[in-house]
Write a protein that binds this DNA or RNA. Sequence first.
DNA 1: TCACATACGTACATGCATGCATGTTACCTT
DNA 2: AAGGTAACATGCATGCATGTACGTATGTGA
Lengths: 212, 212
Amino acid sequence: MKAAERARRTQAERRAQSREALLEAAARGLSRNGYANLVLAQVAADAGYTRGALYHQFAGKEALALAVVRWVDETWTAEVGAPAAATTDPVEALTAMARGHARYCRRDVANVMNVLWTEFAGRDHPVGSLITEVVDRLTAQVAERIAEGRQSGAIPPGPPPATTATAYLGALEGVVSRLTGQAPHDVELAEATVRGVLGLPPSPHRATHHTR
Amino acid sequence: MKAAERARRTQAERRAQSREALLEAAARGLSRNGYANLVLAQVAADAGYTRGALYHQFAGKEALALAVVRWVDETWTAEVGAPAAATTDPVEALTAMARGHARYCRRDVANVMNVLWTEFAGRDHPVGSLITEVVDRLTAQVAERIAEGRQSGAIPPGPPPATTATAYLGALEGVVSRLTGQAPHDVELAEATVRGVLGLPPSPHRATHHTR
DNA sequence: TCACATACGTACATGCATGCATGTTACCTT
DNA sequence: AAGGTAACATGCATGCATGTACGTATGTGA
């Protein structure tokens, strides 16, 4: 096609490129400043545009945040959720998810979910509803894996699977959000944390990696 | 006149009572809405006053938030930190702190620290600086306990004490913030979580409390 | 190349929360 | 009990961010 050779971008390309840049800048801004402190002029400037471009692509601040959440959810599911879901062994799936999440969160974009969750928890807001939806879906998946592991005896008894799953995700987010840039300890501590939540003994590999 | 019915308070009592009510309302508001979404008129109304009373007691929004942080820090230290600090055994101190923190966070006020920390992390703001200071002090204490436990062999080797302490606090906050009102599982899962972070095996009492 | 559509920039209006200045009420002193 | 001071209420001004209307530039199709 000649269109591909042309230096001039097509409108669709142009639009998609702008949208991507705006989404990325918004994700950075959200993970740093949260929703309330997010200034759209700053987002647009970071992406190399002005507010005009932003309002042309998104209906407003709320729509932008919703798009960011969906974007992060998609990438997270592809990179972390899907591989874990494909694993048959429940314990391996749950620990792999912890390690994968820690690696995923090494990029600055990842804190978005955590920040928005704490900001909108227990309030009536579209962004909060979407976050709740995503988190609830994840919690259900984790709870299902915990129930499986309990039945097979691989995971010891404990509080109800739904409660334990909530704790699993809370602890994982808490650890990872504070250990960004602390590679490789982030992955190791993320796994250790969820093993504790699940009532599993420490990973046998653990002691070999360190001296006292 | 209602004044006849009201107990006639001294000015100092009156001031202290108002200040206490405003601080409590502000703490509730902060833990629910965060700093940016905190409306001083709402805080004053919740406490039974107007913004005038608030501005008479506090220089402004920032000073109010700082006072709340100091207030929470004091009550936390008295109820959770001091008892744990008085314990000699490092493992017992660290697990007791987790249980105590879970119980402390059952009141709605407790989420303040977590919310403000995520809101001001990595930004240049007086409230963020104070939170950082409090968290750093706590982290240092936890790291010290971890180092003690590692030396005595009660805690297995792992990442550096400072890193592990950061993970300890992050995981603890993460678990507890999502399990409010889930008594008694909050306490049990808080302890299980920090045991995992520290690389300790599950508490032996654990399995006896539950059926599969 | 010319008319149209879409991407983007700019300027203005609105709402809202803070901070302050000025009143009003409750408490203390003598 | 009367004047004074501190606690508290109320109205106003300012700043800032959002949203929108309109102007400009760039790509598209005939």
